[in-house]
Design a protein around this nucleic acid. Structure first.
Lengths: 294, 294
DNA sequence: TAATTTGTTCGAAAAAACTGAACACTTTAA
DNA sequence: TTAAAGTGTTCAGTTTTTTCGAACAAATTA
């Protein structure tokens, strides 16, 4: 490779400053040094970069290619160096946290704020996944940490997990929904007459499965908990929702819970991660999230 | 920028050859030189690149980033140099030839073959455009040369053009089409009863216009001449086609021409290009195409 | 016309890169 | 177990590359 990054910086400076002299000044060198650098580069590459016009030099078309593409190269080089430094620091370049749609992002916000205070340079990406999808993201390395959702099945090696909370599911409708007028408690048969809102599993592999499906019930499948809440709030259907996600709306009265004949479920929510993850940020978040539980 | 491309090549060689000694041999240097280069790089960047394990050296995570991203950088650098050489040679890096759908690519093939013999390094891109679209491609610099279609309007500056041929349009149908049984010649009113196949203008700016539309006729709009021929051949509709494009099918008998009451049109086909185009390849193609006409 | 600004040339000096022998260490082979 | 071969490193000396600064020629400006 008969080209140096230094030479590209010289070209950049000459173009930016408008003359060899000004560029030399900016680079704390002497004009003749730049002449030498450019001439050497021209000789090495085998074509002319600057052509004299009057008392100043202008770029040839080939020289312009070198300048403009060279600038991108310089930026890419600096980005690479920065990334290597980041890796060397032990903090990840980026950390992907998958939030199961059951999970409440509110709980994560203070932890995120605290993390940003550390100035680690880690880029945090939040993904929203649904049920199976969150664990799949972990297995396929699209996520480093999963918050919420079921525990990993025992057949998958190398994953660790810890129960974080119990989420209490309750059957809810909009406040004006006809079911609110029915005699309570509700049996499954009574519910089948109404449209239910169901969250679709976001995993790509596993067959489509959803939570609490009832036979022959009219269904609308949605992509997230937020969508499910919106549709129920709009009176379009009914569904089971985790109490912690809708406490506010229950207090406001826009949503109401209905008593069911069968006892409502309570499903545990887990935090899962890969055991062999050595990154400082992943460790920090796991420690911080688990200690937060207490 | 405390990093040289040479150092990246050294890292690459060490990783490829598996040891400092082998890499030194491949680079026609002495092992101690590589030690010097790597140590200097480590000092400049401020982190360790190789760690000793047993009697050999292995990359640290940060070193691996440098190696892998550095390889991309080296490739990009070489690509840039190649491009600059190409520009310096006076031949374009790439040449875009827009073929109006009326044009027959067969005429261009021997010219393309001849051009490839020249080994110019120019990347040729063929675009198929329809009517207004071909000139629009020229104006918007998506194309360097346009073959076929109408001449540029006089209001557009800097475009040159030359008439290449007259294309003779004739009304055709599939051989079993009901119109073939009708008494000839056909008037416009007789045609309106049948679906006509029309090519849609591919230009984005100009309002949709198509060739030889007749009032209140059933239409199917297609995207290219080839599609139009296919649909007519399948008996789906009728349409005007340039004779040179379908001579083969007329000889075979899969398509038949119908006599029309009004005389069939003959539209000139032009070759258009930008006057200020200085590229050698554009010049070569224009000269070659124009001389071919004789 | 004189002064200023441009980039270049060239010899000398400084800096960087490279060499090769000696060395310390690990792994392999006898 | 010992010898041999292979690893990368150190270091003094050499070579090459880069930089400097003064002198210069040419174009522009005052």
């Amino acid at each position: 490779m008969k080209l140096t990054l230094d030479a590209l910086e010289v070209l950049d400076a000459i173009d930016k400053k408008g003359s060899f002299a000004a560029a030399a000044n900016a680079l704390f060198r002497v004009p003749s040094t730049l002449t030498y650098t450019v001439q050497k580069l021209e000789e090495d590459l085998g074509f002319v970069i600057f052509r004299k016009e009057g008392r100043r030099s202008v770029l040839t078309p080939a020289g312009r290619v070198l300048l403009e593409e060279g600038r991108h190269l310089l930026l890419a080089t600096q980005a690479m160096i920065d990334k290597a430094h980041q890796v060397d620091s032990g903090w990840e370049v980026s950390l992907n946290i998958a939030l199961d749609t059951v999970w409440d992002i509110e709980q994560l916000l203070p932890i995120l704020a605290e993390f940003q205070q550390l100035n680690t340079g880690v880029e945090i990406n939040l993904l929203e996944e649904v049920m199976g999808g969150s664990l799949e993201a972990l297995i396929e390395d699209r996520a480093d940490i999963v918050l919420g959702g079921p525990p990993p099945s025992a057949t998958i090696q190398g994953l660790q997990f810890k129960e974080m909370m119990q989420s209490q599911w309750c059957l809810v409708t909009a406040k004006d929904h006809p079911l609110t007028k029915t005699s309570l408690p509700l049996t499954n048969e009574m519910m089948t007459a109404y449209t239910s809102i169901v969250i679709k599993d976001s995993s790509r592999q596993s067959p489509i499965q959803s939570h609490r499906i009832m036979a022959k019930q009219k269904q609308i499948k949605v992509a997230s908990m937020a969508q499910k809440i919106s549709l129920i709030e709009a009176g379009i259907g009914i569904g089971f929702l985790p109490r912690h996600k809708i406490q506010g709306k229950l207090d406001e009265g826009t949503l109401v819970t209905l008593e069911t004949a069968e006892p409502t479920q309570s499903t545990p929510q887990y935090c899962s991660w890969k055991r062999n993850n050595k990154g400082k940020a992943a460790r920090w978040f796991i420690d911080r999230i688990l200690s937060d539980k207490v």
